[in-house]
Nucleic acid binder design. Structure first.
Lengths: 237, 237
DNA sequence: CCTTGTAATCTGGTTAACCAATTTATAAGT
DNA sequence: ACTTATAAATTGGTTAACCAGATTACAAGG
């Protein structure tokens, strides 16, 4: 019996191979920025894969900004030049699955920035949303329940208030994996959660006061406690 | 005549509406983490859209880690709980297109970190790759040609050497848009490029010496010149 | 009552034919 | 020769039927 997960790996491999072949094609045909890629039908025939596979590969490259697919017209190569195109495709194919360490590093980097920006740019509406998230979190912790989700929603509310849509987007991308890891390692148990309430409140107050330095410091404190604890339990297990 | 671009907007709107409906469904049916979503056929029938549209929406939610589609088995909701799921779907739908300011902010944040990490973790192979990118850039500038692409590939080589796959991925996502904007605003003209050669060399040397503080400082200097200049030309145009 | 084997059903993935908008080629008019 | 009108070909998007693996239901055997 073939394991379930292998089917996904297979499909990812074919996608990577298609992306690679599209890259070679752009090189070989010397396609300039703005030029049109061969049609999806021709590509699927040339690569001997289904058209939907080609479409998925194109969608992925569209996500990275390398292609632009326009209905009833064609798929066009982005205005970044062949050299950048080659380098980027190579990098995209080489990308490995994220480890927990990368995840934590990136989260801390992003959040120390978003909390600073949020304290500078937050509107009254942003502040209310953050307060709501804070209250939802506190209530659940005080009832003795698990509140990992409310915790992360508080942080996402801050990211939204930062006014930087890219950082907001990046936070959204890494959040689910953070939640899964937290629940796997039981990072947020009740003892830690009670402490975190006051830490969250401090962060909120700093944003309310529009004090960027304080906001960043309070967030830093928050992470120190959180991940020091995480490191300990990981070593003990 | 319908404008070309509108067709893409339409398709994005239907995708958003499908994502929203999937969110409602998870709420209404009280689907717990790990539960199975109705099949793609049922969803397409229920929502009165094509199955491929449903598949695309699912793929997007898979990208954000909210769903997991397993061949011949079904699509499962991620282990993050309904509350987080609702908040995240709301945020994903609300996400606006990135502006240039967000782009620059995020780039600087990421690169000041990746250059530091790269100086600490770079292997000899990483160092060689960075050197290659540096030489390719310098040569092209000295020949008086435009070298925006080689510039960005140098920075991407550093991101790769950082050993943080998520930051590397995020850098790849924002790079094409940076290139496009640079070329649009003619950020890197020859005068600036000649100055940038020595700045790039300084960054490389700091990474080679494995001096994280120096590396970060040199990168900061590099950005100061770059975006101050950018700000000036944007005001003058 | 529980286990086991088998067949029917259900799943995401693939394929091929079809659609409407676009682009290109061709022909008619001036 | 050039412009304009019309038709043929091309495009990404959609649809419906099909595939192989996974799941489920159920009956036979213990």
């Amino acid at each position: 019996m073939k394991l379930k997960i292998l089917a996904k790996v297979d499909s990812l491999d074919t996608q990577k191979s298609i992306i690679s072949k599209i890259g070679e094609l752009i090189n070989f045909k010397n396609l300039e920025p703005g030029d049109k890629l061969p049609s999806e039908r021709m590509l699927s025939e040339k690569f001997e894969v289904s058209r939907s596979s080609v479409r998925e590969a194109i969608q992925k490259l569209e996500l990275y900004g390398l292609l632009d697919s326009i209905p009833q017209s064609g798929t066009f190569v982005a205005n970044i030049g062949v050299i950048a195109m080659n380098g980027m495709i190579e990098d995209i194919l080489r990308l490995e699955d994220p480890d927990f360490k990368s995840l934590v590093e990136t989260r801390i980097l992003l959040e120390l920035k978003t909390v600073r920006l949020a304290s500078l740019r937050r509107t009254e509406e942003d502040l209310e949303k953050i307060k709501e998230a804070l209250d939802a979190y506190s209530e659940k912790v005080l009832r003795g329940e698990d509140a990992v989700q409310e915790d992360l929603l508080f942080h996402l509310a801050i990211a939204r208030a930062s006014g930087n849509s890219i950082m907001n987007n990046f936070m959204l991308i890494i959040t689910p994996e953070i939640i899964t890891n937290f629940e796997k390692y039981h990072v947020c148990d009740k003892k830690l959660a009670n402490l975190s309430i006051s830490e969250h409140q401090d962060i909120f107050e700093a944003i309310k006061k529009q004090d960027p330095m304080l906001a960043k410091q309070k967030m830093k404190d928050h992470f120190t406690v959180l991940y020091q604890y995480c490191y300990n339990i990981k070593k003990s297990t």
